[in-house]
Design a protein around this nucleic acid. Structure first.
Length: 480
DNA sequence: ATAGATGATTGCAT
DNA sequence: ATGCAATCATCTAT
């Protein structure tokens, strides 16, 4: 069961937020200072600090990670020649070879700032500097090539696309849907009257708008942070490009990496937002949670039909549509209602006796009016029900024979309606004849439902004639 | 607060 | 696809 929506409307605590570095205050914040969590930002050996090593070798490092440092002995340095002691000023003994120069460079970080500055200056003026720098360039080139092979451009992320589509469909991203913030699904939700859930709709809209607001605010923060960080790194790289070889392409790649990292975080935000929307939907749109009892009118209409077609309470699709229209409910609700009604009636017929009597009498009056006046009855037509002749009437009622005359109406335009009243009349007649047996002795028990529990009588009355055009339906199953 | 009523859903059978 | 049976979740009367 989803948590955190109704109760205080909190974002689902799904770990993703934590992975994004969401602070304890619930705000999305970059963890710590502008330091890249892992991985190389600068792929350069320490010997890069030639022109202005202080930029790179400063004690505080500015988040620069050194990778692929040279071995203590330094590279084989084919271009290097034995050093010239005279070129290196104090402090420290003059380097006699490339190894010594490199040792000095490596040791520079352990020195004090002043010492380091002096050493730096000395190294910068070293006659071997151009040679070492070219070696550095060579190594750099190789490193870049190897990296280039590893990281190719990511394929368009299908999941991200799905998330984007969903957020767009839900109205979280994209242009705001004024006045209709709630998606169509709300209106299409089966159940309940179309007008009685405006409160829920507005509530839904409010929550969705809240999600939307949070989403956009966080997204904006991400974009801002991304751009700030990108600028920061680019400035850093530009500065460093004066001390080591950094191509524009490299900077571009770095920017791409940063954007990639941020888009991962964005995707997590989108995922969280989608989760929140789903929870919201399940909260508000789950029909079970929104169950409303049908209006009196709807119940009346349904019951009228049910009890007037007790021998075969299976309304056709047409009849269902008509009932739905009359009751102001959906067709599927009509189906549900009949499903429930049949099973509950069958389970406990005694309980429904009174109700059955009321509706039977009511419908019987209508039927007699129909017969007398030749007018249309109120009940919907029933193509696959009693009027179709696809069910068997009982022969247990002696007075039922009197109703046979009514069947002659079946071939007339109002015949279906007349036939649909027969159950009611039948019921009333039975009630008059055996009133003493009503209580605790449901009238329809043996007549409508057989021992197997199916909606069918045990025998077929020879007195009933099937309507024209349906000669083979005498013994057909009531339930399809 | 509770039990019963009721509309909806689910799994299965046909 | 439709109906049955069991069940769920909510509504309503007490």
């Amino acid at each position: 069961m989803p948590v955190g929506v109704a109760e205080g409307w909190a974002w689902p605590d799904g770990g993703a937020s934590r992975r994004c570095g969401r602070g304890p205050a619930g705000r999305w914040a970059w963890p710590g200072r502008w330091a890249w969590p892992r991985g190389p930002v600068v792929c350069a050996p320490p010997s890069a600090a030639m022109e202005d090593p202080s930029r790179l070798m400063a004690p505080h490092g500015a988040g620069v990670t050194l990778q692929g440092g040279l071995p203590p002995g330094g590279p084989t340095a084919p271009t290097a020649t034995p050093g010239d002691p005279s070129a290196v000023p104090p402090p420290g003994p003059p380097p006699h070879d490339t190894g010594d120069v490199l040792q000095q460079i490596m040791a520079i970080t352990d020195q004090s700032l002043d010492e380091a500055q002096a050493r730096k200056h000395a190294l910068n003026c070293h006659r071997m500097k151009p040679a070492l720098f070219s070696v550095l360039c060579e190594i750099k080139e190789k490193t870049v090539l190897s990296i280039r092979g590893i990281q190719e451009e990511d394929p368009p992320d299908a999941q991200l696309m799905r998330l984007d589509n969903m957020l767009l469909a839900e109205g979280v991203s994209g242009p705001e849907k004024r006045g209709r913030g709630a998606p169509m699904a709300v209106a299409a939700t089966p159940g309940g009257c179309p007008n009685d859930n405006s409160i829920e709709h507005s509530d839904y809209r409010a929550k969705l708008s809240q999600i939307r607001q949070i989403y956009h605010s966080e997204l904006e923060k991400y974009e801002q942070a991304c751009s700030e960080f990108t600028t920061h790194v680019m400035n850093l790289l530009r500065e460093q490009s004066r001390t080591r070889p950094i191509s524009p392409k490299e900077i571009e790649r770095m920017v791409n990496i940063i954007h990639g990292k941020f888009s991962t975080i964005q995707m997590q935000l989108k995922q969280s937002t989608c989760e929140a929307v789903m929870i919201l939907r399940s909260r508000f749109l789950d029909a079970r949670r929104k169950r409303r009892n049908f209006s009196k009118q709807a119940t009346e209409v349904l019951n009228e039909y049910f009890y007037s077609h007790l021998s075969n309470p299976y309304p056709s699709e047409e009849a269902k549509e008509e009932l739905a229209k009359k009751g102001g409910i959906t067709v599927s609700q009509v189906s549900n209602w009949f499903g429930n009604k049949r099973i509950r009636y069958k389970k406990n017929m005694g309980k429904f006796q009174e109700e059955a009597n009321i509706y039977a009498a009511k419908t019987a009056v209508d039927a007699t009016n129909v017969v007398a006046q030749g007018n249309r009855a109120n009940s919907p037509s029933t193509p696959n029900s009693a009027s179709s002749g696809s069910f068997k009437m009982t022969n247990s009622g002696d007075s039922f024979i009197n109703l046979q005359s009514l069947t002659s109406y079946q071939s007339s335009p109002v015949g279906g309606n007349v036939q649909s009243q027969m159950d009611s009349l039948h019921h009333v007649i039975h009630q008059a004849g055996r009133y003493d047996t009503i209580v605790g002795n449901p009238l329809y028990t043996t007549q409508r439902i057989d021992a197997n529990g199916s909606w069918q009588d045990a025998t077929t009355p020879s007195s009933i004639t099937s309507p024209a055009g349906d000669p083979g339906s005498v013994n057909s199953d009531a339930s399809n």
